[in-house]
């Protein structure tokens, strides 16, 4: 079981979560893909078990992606966090990297690019 990697996708945009889920269940890395539609739901999942990679949106009702990133980093620093956002702001990007984000990606992104990045992190 230890070899199976775990990926969590967090976004309140259902279509995007679905597309990302479909992409990652078909990557050539043995990996368990879970989704959450809010920061709070993501926290609950994180309490249930360790994740290698978390992809999270920033602007969500309730707990936002930046705060979620801080919480993940304080509990499991080795979890890689990719932030995806529809905002175009340099300041937010700077903050994300300061708080330990692996990558900050603006929406709409290239699916192949994010797929390759995650596969690389999981391998």
């Amino acid at each position: 079981m230890d070899d199976i990697k775990r990926l969590l996708i967090v976004d309140d945009e259902e279509t995007l979560t679905f597309s990302l889920y479909q992409t990652f269940i078909n990557v050539p890395v043995e990996c368990e893909v879970l989704t959450a539609s809010s920061g709070e739901e993501a926290l609950a999942r994180l309490q249930e078990g360790h994740f290698d990679v978390v992809i999270t949106d920033i602007a969500m009702p309730g707990l936002n992606g930046i705060d979620l990133l801080s919480m993940i980093k304080s509990r499991t620093p080795d979890t890689k966090v990719i932030l995806i956002t529809a905002y175009g702001s340099d300041e937010r990007e700077e903050l994300a990297y300061q708080k330990g984000a692996e990558k900050y990606i603006e929406k709409p992104f290239d699916l192949h690019e994010i797929r390759d990045l995650v596969v690389n992190l999981l391998s």
């Binding site: 279509t15 995007l16 597309s19 479909q22 602007a59 529809a86 709409p108 699916l111």
Partner: peptide
């Protein structure tokens, strides 16, 4: 404008990812 742009970029991300699949 920033608010509207944000709201539009979200569904665009969904459309693009779905189309690429």
């Amino acid at each position: 404008s920033a608010g509207i742009a944000h709201e539009i970029r979200n569904p665009l991300a969904g459309i693009k990812a779905s189309a690429q699949i």
